[in-house]
Amino acid sequence: AEKTGIVNVSSSLNVREGASTSSKVIGSLSGNTKVTIVGEEGAFYKIEYKGSHGYVAKEYIKDIKDE
């Protein structure tokens, strides 16, 4: 049951290796980017990222929809 969301930041949002603010940053997404959410862990969504997965803070994702 995948969902999509939109990155809701003015600059960019860090994509992390794990569901923690201390996890390594593996990339970033600019505002209004559409993401595919494959799961959630605590305050983070697990998303599809560059052929693999990454984690982003839930508070910066809006317009969550079921695909």
Rank of each mutant, 00 (worst) to 15 (best):
A1R: 06
A1E: 15
A1C: 07
A1P: 12
A1G: 15
A1T: 09
A1F: 10
E2N: 14
E2T: 12
E2R: 08
K3A: 07
K3E: 04
K3C: 05
T4S: 12
T4Y: 06
T4N: 06
T4P: 04
T4L: 09
G5K: 04
G5W: 02
G5N: 03
G5A: 05
G5T: 04
G5F: 03
G5Q: 03
G5H: 04
I6H: 06
I6K: 07
I6P: 02
I6V: 14
I6Q: 05
V7W: 01
V7G: 03
V7K: 02
V7N: 03
V7R: 02
V7F: 01
N8C: 08
N8S: 12
N8Q: 10
N8M: 12
N8R: 14
N8H: 13
N8G: 10
N8P: 04
V9Q: 07
V9R: 07
V9C: 07
V9T: 14
V9A: 12
V9M: 08
V9H: 12
V9Y: 03
S10I: 14
S10G: 11
S10R: 10
S10E: 13
S10W: 05
S10Y: 05
S11H: 10
S11M: 12
S11N: 13
S11C: 08
S11Q: 13
S11L: 12
S11A: 10
S11V: 13
S11E: 12
S12D: 10
S12R: 15
S12C: 08
S12L: 11
S12E: 15
S12N: 12
S12T: 15
L13P: 07
L13R: 02
L13Q: 03
L13V: 14
L13A: 11
N14W: 11
N14C: 08
N14M: 14
N14V: 15
N14P: 14
N14F: 11
N14H: 14
N14L: 11
N14E: 14
V15A: 01
V15H: 00
V15Q: 00
V15N: 00
V15E: 00
V15W: 02
V15G: 00
R16M: 15
R16D: 00
R16E: 01
R16G: 03
R16T: 12
R16C: 05
R16H: 15
R16F: 15
R16I: 05
E17H: 09
E17G: 08
E17S: 12
E17R: 06
E17P: 01
G18F: 13
G18K: 12
G18Y: 12
G18L: 14
G18E: 13
G18N: 14
G18M: 14
A19I: 06
A19V: 06
A19S: 10
A19Y: 04
A19R: 03
A19H: 06
A19F: 04
S20Y: 12
S20I: 07
S20H: 12
S20W: 06
S20V: 05
S20G: 07
T21D: 14
T21A: 13
T21H: 15
T21L: 15
T21W: 12
T21E: 13
S22I: 11
S22C: 07
S22V: 12
S23Y: 04
S23W: 02
S23G: 05
S23H: 10
S23M: 05
S23T: 08
S23Q: 04
K24Y: 04
K24Q: 12
K24L: 10
K24C: 06
K24F: 05
K24P: 13
V25I: 11
V25R: 05
V25E: 04
V25T: 07
I26A: 02
I26N: 02
I26Q: 02
I26L: 10
G27L: 04
G27K: 01
G27M: 04
G27D: 03
G27N: 02
G27P: 00
S28Y: 13
S28W: 11
S28G: 06
S28E: 12
S28C: 06
S28N: 12
S28R: 15
L29A: 02
L29C: 03
L29D: 00
L29K: 01
L29R: 01
L29F: 04
L29Y: 03
S30C: 07
S30V: 12
S30P: 14
S30E: 11
S30M: 15
S30A: 15
S30I: 15
G31M: 14
G31V: 08
G31K: 15
G31R: 14
G31D: 13
G31P: 15
G31Y: 11
G31A: 15
N32C: 06
N32G: 14
N32E: 11
N32W: 09
N32Y: 09
N32A: 10
N32I: 05
N32F: 10
N32K: 08
T33Q: 10
T33A: 15
T33S: 11
T33D: 09
T33P: 02
K34G: 04
K34I: 11
K34N: 06
K34T: 13
V35M: 02
V35N: 00
V35A: 02
V35G: 00
T36E: 05
T36N: 09
T36S: 10
T36K: 15
T36R: 15
T36Y: 15
T36M: 14
T36V: 15
T36A: 08
T36P: 03
I37M: 03
I37C: 02
I37R: 01
I37Y: 01
I37S: 00
I37W: 01
I37P: 00
V38N: 04
V38T: 09
V38L: 15
V38G: 02
V38R: 04
V38P: 00
G39P: 00
G39R: 04
G39H: 04
G39T: 04
G39Y: 03
G39K: 04
G39I: 02
E40D: 08
E40N: 05
E40M: 09
E40A: 08
E40R: 05
E40P: 02
E40V: 08
E41T: 09
E41H: 11
E41L: 09
E41S: 10
E41A: 08
G42I: 03
G42S: 06
G42N: 09
G42R: 05
A43S: 14
A43N: 13
A43F: 12
A43T: 10
A43C: 07
A43L: 14
A43D: 15
A43Q: 15
A43W: 08
F44S: 03
F44K: 01
F44T: 02
F44I: 01
F44A: 03
F44N: 03
Y45R: 01
Y45W: 11
Y45G: 00
Y45C: 03
Y45F: 12
Y45V: 05
K46I: 13
K46D: 03
K46Y: 08
K46E: 10
I47G: 00
I47T: 01
I47Q: 00
I47C: 01
I47K: 00
E48L: 11
E48A: 10
E48P: 10
E48N: 12
E48H: 09
Y49H: 05
Y49D: 01
Y49W: 11
Y49T: 02
Y49M: 03
Y49Q: 01
Y49A: 01
Y49N: 01
Y49F: 15
Y49R: 00
Y49S: 01
Y49C: 03
K50R: 11
K50N: 13
G51S: 07
G51V: 04
G51P: 08
G51R: 07
G51L: 08
S52I: 11
S52N: 13
S52F: 12
S52W: 09
S52C: 06
S52H: 14
S52Y: 10
S52M: 13
S52G: 14
H53G: 04
H53W: 09
H53C: 05
H53P: 05
H53A: 09
H53Q: 07
G54V: 03
G54W: 02
G54N: 01
G54M: 03
G54Q: 01
G54C: 03
Y55Q: 00
Y55I: 01
Y55G: 00
Y55E: 00
Y55D: 00
Y55T: 00
Y55V: 00
V56H: 00
V56K: 00
V56L: 04
V56Q: 00
V56C: 03
V56R: 00
A57E: 15
A57N: 14
A57K: 11
A57L: 15
A57F: 14
K58S: 05
K58R: 08
K58F: 03
K58C: 04
K58T: 04
E59V: 12
E59C: 06
E59Q: 11
E59D: 10
E59M: 14
E59P: 05
E59S: 09
E59K: 10
E59R: 12
Y60Q: 08
Y60G: 13
Y60F: 13
Y60A: 14
Y60N: 10
Y60E: 06
Y60H: 13
Y60V: 05
I61F: 05
I61M: 05
I61P: 01
I61A: 01
I61V: 11
I61T: 02
I61N: 01
I61Y: 02
K62V: 14
K62S: 15
K62H: 12
K62N: 10
K62D: 11
D63T: 13
D63V: 14
D63W: 09
D63K: 10
D63E: 15
D63C: 07
D63S: 09
D63G: 10
I64F: 10
I64W: 08
I64E: 07
I64H: 07
I64V: 13
K65F: 09
K65C: 06
K65Q: 15
K65W: 09
K65T: 13
K65I: 12
K65E: 10
D66L: 10
D66V: 08
D66Y: 07
D66I: 15
D66T: 11
D66A: 11
D66F: 07
E67C: 06
E67W: 02
E67Q: 14
